[in-house]
Amino acid sequence: MNERTKARISFFIYIGLLIVFDTSYSFMILNLFLAFAALELSFLLRLFHVQNKREIPMSVLFFIVFLLLSPNAIYVVTDLIHLNVFAFDFKEGLQLNEWWNFTILVSGVILAIYYYVNMIKQVYFYSNDITSAKWLFFVFILLSSIGVFIGRFLRFHSIHLFTEPVTLIVRFIEAIDFSAVLFISWMSILQFLICWLFLDGTGEAHDK
């Protein structure tokens, strides 16, 4: 079974589970949908590769939408903070409800990491030139970290860049301070770590 099929099967099973069973993390339906949508769009990157000047507007529009959606994959990792709705006081014995919800949330995060890794592969292989691929990869990770910061702390969605672009940019500039830079750096380190662990050999594959 290829990675794409695995991603699809896992997504539909996960969403089905969240719809059918009672959990405290039903917001994961939307969050994982957005992460999965970003992955599916990444598979279309080559379709929107510009072949002549007339294709530029459509391709630019597609790349903008993809860039706006792509941070959603790594954003799901930060949803782990919602584990704090449960006490997890193990001295009180096994509370099944807590661990059921733990399983649901953590499996959603693992799936999001899987989608993220496959999405990054598509971004990395988009460019045929190894140097530009590395730059693209670096910029993509940095933009994703900024996207996570905007989504998590300024509470903006990707769509607000279309509906309220000025407000979003002004709020982002106002919010940038030392702590924000640290947070963005930590999110980038997290992404580099994931890539280093799960994309090992990508560079060699690119050279072939």
Partner: peptide
């Protein structure tokens, strides 16, 4: 044709998200 079709789909989602974003 495929490029156009996928952009139509994206446009549908953008409008949907714009509604949701409100």
């Amino acid at each position: 044709q495929l490029r156009k079709a996928y952009l139509f789909v994206l446009a549908q989602y953008l409008v949907l998200f714009a509604l949701f974003g409100g």
